[in-house]
Structure formats: structure tokens, C-alpha cells
Simulated assay, not measured.
Amino acid sequence: MPTPELVHLDADGWRDFRDVRLASLADSPYAFGSRHADWVDATEERWRARLTDVPFTVVARCGSGLVGVVSGVPSDDHVELISLWVAPAQRGTGLAGRLIAAVVAWATALGRDTLLMVRDDNVQAIRAYERAGFADLGVPPDRPADEPRERRMRHAPRAG
């Protein structure tokens, strides 16, 4: 199996983002805050806006197909890693680690830590984040009880 190429998308890459995002929402609906139904009929303008509002989005391309995606959103003091997904055929190949590393490298270049939220029951994702150097900070105390339990994880830039 060839090694997927990681490609940073801007708003002009909206079609690729649409395709991989809809695939991720259909494949793993439990892992995301958004639902497939929220995006399936989205306009080009909405897809472009997502890539503008979330300035760091990377897709993994393998041949003519898209097999992974991840995004990073900067805040005042950190970058939030969001929307990580790897196609089932690529799981266990190290692609998740490469996608995570892309966001961490971007955050580190900005001088910021990387934080994320992950569902308690998403054991595969938690393991991938731990392998990538994230520490589990637990369930935030202000997390609403009527929402799925999510854990906060943090990756701090290494002092160089």
C-alpha cells in the first residue's frame, strides 16, 4: 500500500474537504460533534467558510482517494486539534500519527500547546493520541452531564 501524501487545504480545496469530511461523518458519527445530516447539503460557500474559519486542515491522499483528515484551530494560548479521521483501510498504518503530528508541528511553530477533546469510548483515538505524546487531563469538571463524556488531552511543545 502506498504511503498517503499529506496536503494542506485552503478554501479552494473545499471539494476535497467536503468529500473526506462527509466520508468521516458517515463512517464514524459517534466521534464528531457534527452530523452527516448537518453537512450533506452544505453549499460551496459553507465549505469554503469552514476552511477559512479553521485555518489548518490537512487531508491524506492515497492515489486518487482521500483517506484521512485533521484540522487545527488556534486560540489565544493553544491550538485545538479537531476532526481527526482515518479511513478504515488505513487504520493501524501510522497515518493517524502523521496527521496528529502535522497539527502539533503547526501549533509548535506558533509557540502553542495542542489540546483536544476525545470521547471516553473512542479507545482507538485515545491510544493514537497517547502514542503521539498527549497526556490525558481527564473529563473537565464543567462538562455537561447530558452530553457524551469527553476527555481533555494536551501535548506541550518540547523545549529545544
Rank of each mutant, 00 (worst) to 15 (best):
E150T: 11
P2F: 02
A107Q: 03
D38N: 12
L116V: 02
M153Y: 14
Q90P: 07
L9G: 07
D136I: 06
L137E: 13
R158L: 15
E80K: 10
R48D: 02
V59R: 08
H36S: 00
T114D: 04
L81M: 15
A102I: 04
V139I: 14
H155Q: 15
G160P: 08
R151C: 06
G94E: 13
V20C: 05
S71H: 04
I126L: 12
Y30H: 08
S34P: 01
R143I: 05
A60R: 08
A87I: 04
S28G: 06
A87S: 15
A23S: 09
T93E: 11
G68V: 06
D16R: 13
D27Q: 10
V54W: 00
A109K: 04
V69C: 15
R48N: 11
V54S: 06
V118D: 05
P4A: 10
G160I: 10
D41T: 13
I126K: 06
A128P: 05
M1T: 14
V40H: 10
L110Q: 08
A89L: 14
A107S: 11
L115H: 15
R21K: 10
R154G: 06
R98K: 11
S34Y: 06
E147A: 11
E130S: 13
F17V: 04
G72A: 09
A156P: 01
V103T: 02
L110F: 00
R149F: 01
P2V: 10
P144S: 05
F134H: 05
A26M: 00
A125C: 12
T43V: 02
D136H: 15
P74A: 15
S24P: 08
S83T: 09
F17M: 07
P141I: 01
L51T: 07
D120L: 07
A159S: 15
A96I: 08
V7Y: 02
G138S: 11
V103N: 01
R152I: 01
V20W: 00
W39R: 00
L95V: 05
P88V: 07
P55K: 02
D16C: 09
E5F: 10
A23I: 05
V104Q: 14
L116T: 14
E130Y: 03
S71T: 05
G97V: 09
D136W: 08
L110H: 02
G72H: 10
C62K: 09
T57A: 12
P29V: 05
L115Y: 11
A145P: 03
T93G: 04
D146Y: 09
V73W: 11
G138R: 04
N122Q: 12
L81R: 10
A87C: 11
G72V: 02
D27F: 00
D27M: 03
R46S: 09
V70T: 10
G68L: 07
P140E: 13
A109V: 02
D121R: 10
G138F: 08
R91K: 12
T3M: 09
V103A: 04
A31Y: 00
R48M: 12
L115V: 06
G111M: 03
V79C: 09
W14K: 11
P74Q: 01
F134Y: 13
G133N: 14
V79I: 09
P2A: 12
A87M: 06
L6Y: 13
R46Q: 15
G92H: 07
R119V: 03
P148K: 15
I100E: 04
G65F: 03
E147Y: 06
E5H: 05
Y30R: 08
A125V: 09
E45S: 13
R143T: 14
